[in-house]
Every structure is written in C-alpha cells, then in structure tokens.
C-alpha cells in the first residue's frame, strides 16, 4: 500500500489529508505501508500528533510503516522533535529551540504527561517569552485537553501530543490526538439522537454540556478553553470523526471532512505576545465561592 502525503498544515486541509490517509489504510493488516512524502513540502510539526496516531494504529495492526522521499527541511524538523525517531531516524539537536517533543502516552500516564509539560514548557526558559499569567493559563489549557482525552476518549491505543513555536508569528501551537471513540458517538449515545460529527462537537463545546455521568461532574473543560482562546486572540480546532470545528476571533466555524479521523484531535494556537491579565471576572471573596 502506498500513500502520497501532501503538505500538512494545521488547518482543514491538513486534517482532511490525514483523515484520507486513515481512510485508505484502515483495513491494512500485516501489510507494507509506504508513505511517500515527496510532495510534502511543509509539515506543521504539531500535526505529528494526529499523524503519529494514525501511524501507531497501523503498527498496532502489524503493518510495517515506511516514510520515504522526505524533503530535507521536513525531515529536519520531524527529526528535531523526535517524531522520526519512531521510524528509524536519529533525533537531532534543535538549536533554535522551537520544537516541542512528539510523545505518546497511555491514559494512565498523567504523571508522565505532567513531567513532559514541565520539561517542554516550564523548565525551558528559551520558549517563548510570555507573561507568567499567560504561561499559567496555557499550561492549564494543555492539561484540560489531556484530561478531556483521558476522561472521554476510552482509547486503548493512547494519546499523542506535539507542539511547535513559531517565533516570527508569536504563535505557539500544541496538538493532542487520541484514538478513542470520538465526540459524535459519545454525544449521540448520551442524547439518543443522530447529530452530525460537527454538530456533536458544537454541542460538546457549549457551556455546561457534558456526556459525563456518575458522581464526578463535568462540562467545563472545553468552554474554559474557548474562553481562554477568546481572551488570548488565539485559535482552537477540534477534529473528531468526520467533524471539523474551529473557534477564532470569538467566532465558531464547523464543517465536515470527507473522511473520518479515527478519534479526536484538539489543536490550540496561542498568541504568545498577548499581555492580558487573564482574570476572567472580578476578584472573588472566599465566602463567595461555595
């Protein structure tokens, strides 16, 4: 099986291309899967998370995956963030310190994930210069995304993360992908109706909506993320099943992909030059909390 991978940006086209890769290879078993990257003249490094998820799934089906004809500039960035180490290349030093390592986690690995975030963001003073409040809110957002994957995905194959700093644009992108049941199935099972994948994401992102049941409440993580992104002037994109959902400039856009992604991807892009204070409302007295 051969697949020609086009340029991969973290946008609708990039997600659609990766969903197409999944669609064309999902029935491969004990096969030789060759990903031809001749035409991949750019690869937004944080997209290694959904790309790696699809390739990991192929490996779990006992396929041999080979990435061939990689453009040298793409090979360099995917070697710097450790992605190509999973496919036989050596990791090379990142002298510009703009990459955030590609990593796979199991759902029980929350402690490892915390350590990873510490190593990749908290202890790396070279990236990027952000106000301490923004840095704190960014960390919290990343953990909210990871927690969502842990609590809701029911994945057995893991959670994949990767990031990239774009200093010229004052942007930091971070993407988390899982190979779980997807938003649509959870929402439709919960509501007992038949929403489209994009409608299901919109429902899940609305304040207080949750598919959670049982003694621990939910229904806040995604709306907190959206509030933060609105204040920061960044962007959040969610892909699940064949649904694509984006929030930017306080406006939401939802559409369909032609093929489904086998799980859920959340990408956040934050504006690192934002000086906002991130106090979401006026100060609260202690006796006003409960």
């Amino acid at each position: 099986m051969n697949f020609a991978l086009p340029t991969i940006l973290h946008d609708w086209n990039g997600f659609a291309a990766l969903a197409r890769l999944h669609s064309q290879t999902e029935h491969c078993f004990l096969d030789n899967v060759e990903i031809d990257m001749k035409a991949t003249d750019w690869f937004d490094a944080d997209m290694c998370a959904p790309f790696g998820a699809i390739l990991y799934r192929l490996g779990a089906e006992l396929n041999s995956v080979h990435l061939v004809d990689i453009d040298p500039s793409v090979e360099k960035i995917l070697s710097q963030n450790g992605f190509l180490s999973y496919y036989g290349r050596e990791q090379i030093p990142d002298y510009w310190k703009t990459t955030v390592t590609y990593q796979r986690f199991d759902v029980e690995d929350d402690k490892y994930f915390s350590k990873y975030i510490e190593n990749e963001f908290i202890r790396r003073y070279e990236i990027p210069k952000m106000s301490s409040r923004l840095m704190k809110k960014f960390h919290e957002s990343i953990f909210e995304i990871f927690s969502n994957a842990v609590l809701h995905s029911h994945t057995k194959l893991g959670i994949f993360s990767c990031g990239q700093f774009f200093p010229k644009n004052n942007c930091l992108d971070f993407t988390v992908a899982d190979l779980g049941v997807g938003v649509r199935k959870r929402v439709c099972d919960y509501l007992g109706n038949n929403l489209s994948p994009a409608e299901a994401i919109s429902w899940a992102a609305a304040k207080n909506n949750t598919t959670k049941q049982g003694p621990i409440p939910g229904g806040l993580g995604l709306s907190l993320l959206c509030d933060f992104i609105d204040l920061n002037g960044g962007c959040i994109q969610i892909v699940s099943d064949a649904g694509y959902w984006r929030r930017k400039n306080k406006r939401t856009y939802a559409s369909s992909l032609h093929q489904p992604f086998p799980g859920t991807v959340v990408n956040v892009e934050i504006n690192t030059a934002d000086p906002s204070s991130y106090i979401l409302s006026s100060e609260l007295a202690d006796n006003e909390i409960f």
Partner: peptide, 16 residues
C-alpha cells in the same frame, strides 16, 4: 484566578 476557576467548577457542579 484559581478562585474564579473554582467558583465555575462549583456552579457547574450545582447545575450538574
């Protein structure tokens, strides 16, 4: 800001 977050969690829990 953590108090604000906790207040939102509490409000959500009451609603839940």
């Amino acid at each position: 800001d953590d108090k604000v977050l906790l207040r939102r969690v509490v409000d959500t829990a009451k609603w839940y």
